[in-house]
Design a binder for these strands. Structure first.
Length: 256
DNA sequence: GCGACAG
DNA sequence: ATCTTGTCGC
């Protein structure tokens, strides 16, 4: 009993020190994050390839998953390439620390593509998950962008409450102001910091998507990219990555 | 103690 | 994240 309690206490202490370590890692990498259009050889007029990444899971299995990178042509949004692989997720999902669960696998996918088909490398990657819209201003999209030193944009399906944002009044503001495709409102917290934007990408979807800066793009460019690549509620690169990773799991289930 | 909680 | 097809409407 006493030893079990002591073991429990040790485990809790270890978890807390892990989280502190991860926070330090985020703060360190954040210094390399660039929140504006910089060193990009493309503009919205000359952009050719947009990447999208996502990881899908097997029901009831929190470890085995499929990570997918898809490359779409721009502006016609055709699938140029798919890179999918089964991965094992070791770190648990902890809000605010999603990157430590997923980012290494996403980096691997991009490195693989870079090695096999450098001609198909995306000029920008859209991530299923937030960028700056994060408790410490450094979500998965920022993390991936900094590690790769590639432009990234974060796309969230749910608002993450940061900086004492009032969720209810924000949703009320969305309903009032996001009347049509292309409408957007900034996500501004109590400190007046702009963390991202709620963007209505298509007429058919009443609910917006939460766009935030990842790395080497401005919020303005990130919003324009989301709008320019959305055929549905979710911008196509992220939507395709999600769809193809799920398809990969279904095919695999049918085989094995 | 209560609420919040990307994927 | 995941459980899930068709259906109603523009």
């Amino acid at each position: 009993m006493a030893t079990a309690a002591a073991g429990e206490e040790l485990a809790v202490t270890a978890e807390l020190s892990q989280l502190r370590h991860w926070e330090q890692e985020q703060d360190t990498l954040k210094k390399r994050m660039v929140e504006r259009d910089q060193h990009n050889e493309w503009t919205l007029e000359s952009l050719k390839r947009v990447g999208g990444v996502d990881i899908s899971f097997i029901k009831g299995d929190n470890i085995n998953a499929c990570a997918t990178l898809v490359v779409l042509s721009y502006p016609d949004l055709q699938v140029l390439h798919e890179e999918s692989m089964m991965v094992q997720l070791t770190a648990p999902y902890i809000p605010g620390f999603l990157a430590f669960r997923e980012v290494d696998h996403l980096v691997t996918l991009v490195r693989r593509l870079e090695a096999s088909r450098p001609d198909l490398m995306p000029q920008l990657i859209m991530v299923d998950g937030n960028g700056k819209l994060h408790y410490r201003g450094f979500g998965l999209a920022c993390h991936l962008g900094v590690l790769l030193d590639l432009p990234t944009v974060g796309i969230g399906k749910n608002i993450l409450v940061v900086d004492n944002l009032d969720k209810e009044s924000f949703h009320a503001k969305e309903r009032a102001e996001l009347q049509h495709r292309g409408d957007w409102i900034p996500v501004v917290g109590a400190s007046q910091t702009v963390w991202g934007a709620a963007v209505r990408c298509v007429e058919a979807a009443i609910n917006p998507v939460y766009v935030s800066v990842g790395h080497r793009v401005s919020l303005d460019t990130a919003i324009k990219l989301a709008l320019a690549t959305a055929k549905h509620k979710i911008p196509e690169a992220v939507r395709m990555a999600d769809q193809l990773s799920r398809l990969f799991l279904r095919k695999r289930a049918g085989t094995q």
